[in-house]
Design a protein around this nucleic acid. Structure first.
Length: 193
DNA sequence: CGGCCGATTATCT
DNA sequence: GATAATCGGCCGG
């Protein structure tokens, strides 16, 4: 087992943390099995000033975890059916998080297929934020989980770092009517190889 | 690959 | 009452 990313890793601005998460291993302990995938796409959401961030309107019941300690999972429900996994960054009081958008399955493929039948047909890529939460069995129950410990069954292990020339920076996805400049900030990192 | 569309409901105004 | 950090199916190129 590789070293678990410590709280210090997350105690920084999200745009700094997000690219460094590429290549790291997202690990889930699920019904006695170890499920894991390499993070290959992530987006940063940083501060109340970021008009794409859920925290732009201040603290609410849903986004409270983002205002809290770093190294926690911020899991929220959207579109009436999907769960999204974020990792909280920055020190307490500053809302910031990295949305995990895609992973390459590495361990526990059979269990992932059981959780997400669609994975059986396609090539084994979980290229979407709601796809990977489904394959890892992540829901509301993981909201607030400390990912710097194995106690909550969800953590991140240090992995290979992505070669700079293989990392693409693009604007974030699905922001709708978000105003500029936030709409176009290159805060999405994708490891293409 | 890109675009459009319907599904489905917690959360916020 | 409106919106949403999406997905899968179906279309056209």
């Amino acid at each position: 087992m590789n070293p678990i990313l410590p709280i210090e890793f997350f105690s920084r601005p999200a745009p700094q943390v997000a690219p460094e998460l590429l290549g790291c291993l997202l690990v889930r302990q699920w019904q006695g099995q170890r499920l894991a995938g390499m993070i290959v796409e992530a987006e940063a959401y940083q501060g109340m000033e970021d008009q794409a961030c859920h925290a732009r309107v201040g603290k609410t019941a849903r986004n409270t975890v983002m205002f809290g300690a770093p190294g926690r999972a911020y899991v929220y429900f959207t579109y009436g059916m999907h769960w999204m996994l974020n990792l909280v960054c920055e020190s307490e009081g500053i809302p910031a998080a990295v949305l995990i958008r895609a992973i390459k399955p590495v361990e526990g493929l059979d269990a992932m297929r059981a959780l997400r039948p669609h994975l059986a047909d396609t090539n084994a890529w979980l290229n979407g934020p709601a796809k990977l939460t489904q394959a890892l069995g992540i829901t509301r129950e993981q909201n607030g989980t400390d990912v710097c410990s194995t106690d909550g069954g969800l953590w991140v292990e240090k992995g290979a770092s992505a070669p700079l020339e293989q990392v693409r920076l693009t604007p974030r996805i699905g922001l709708g009517a978000t105003p500029e400049p936030w709409l176009s900030l290159p805060w999405r990192w994708e490891w293409k190889f």
